[in-house]
Design a protein around this nucleic acid. Sequence first.
DNA 1: TTCTAACTGCTATGCAATATAACAATCGAG
DNA 2: CTCGATTGTTATATTGCATAGCAGTTAGAA
Lengths: 145, 145
Amino acid sequence: MTDPFEGLLGYHLRRLSVIAMTDLAAALAPLNLKPTEASMLFVIDANPGVSQSEVGRILGVKRANMAPMVATLMRRGLIEREPVDGRVQALRLSGKGQSMRARARACVEAHEERVFGSLSKDERNQMIAVLASLWSKPEVEMEVE
Amino acid sequence: MTDPFEGLLGYHLRRLSVIAMTDLAAALAPLNLKPTEASMLFVIDANPGVSQSEVGRILGVKRANMAPMVATLMRRGLIEREPVDGRVQALRLSGKGQSMRARARACVEAHEERVFGSLSKDERNQMIAVLASLWSKPEVEMEVE
DNA sequence: TTCTAACTGCTATGCAATATAACAATCGAG
DNA sequence: CTCGATTGTTATATTGCATAGCAGTTAGAA
């Protein structure tokens, strides 16, 4: 039986992505964080004071879907908001959020090791370079709303 | 602003996968096929006589979700079923299904060119080898039900 | 300065992919 | 022959993501 997906890069990309996402979700479950929520902590940590719209733009999450997620992280005391002007509110990690971010980061790194551990550091970096160049190029642009 | 996803292979994998899936869905839309339906045509074409459970196992689609998809392809006259025994039914492409499969394949190849066109054939094959080795290894196995 | 277009945060809602649970009919290994 | 496993199926829940619209706010062009 011939493999009809032999030469199709997109197929293998998707299969691995699904497996990786499943593993990541399981890795973060003990922290009661979904992958997107963890990503939000990472982005806010790296860019203190960002607006939630901006976070959404970075992560490819629509404004409408950001609202309830931010509300959840607020409710859990992981992030704090400070009004910048009448619309924008600056997001920052709370102390609790900082330690949660660190724990999440550890989970993510363990996950990466689990899924991509058979690749050398060089291979991984090379892969990252290729993937990043493909998804961040403007030709295949995606609109976040 | 530092990129918190710099070294995370999984992140870039997912971002590209989402873009690729969006492009693929758009590419197949004119044929009124979803990506999974097109994949089913490919698998059935490559393995005439497979059962739908087997197709599901190959594609990572649960039995319960295969039923309505098979029904759709049957209704459209793209595939045919022949009872093998009291449970199993052998799936084959109809003539119409064959030509649809060919057209879908063309769409997929155009899509691949669009998304991965900036990579050389060698780079693509190398990527495929790496991705396939990662997702098909038993350590990170996934259960289809 | 005023007006308008654009932006922020938000709610409500819909859809499609996927997951769970259960069932009847059937098969096959022991 | 029997019992565990398998097939196809229905019904249903969950989840991620999309659309549409709104009120309040801002900023830039006229």
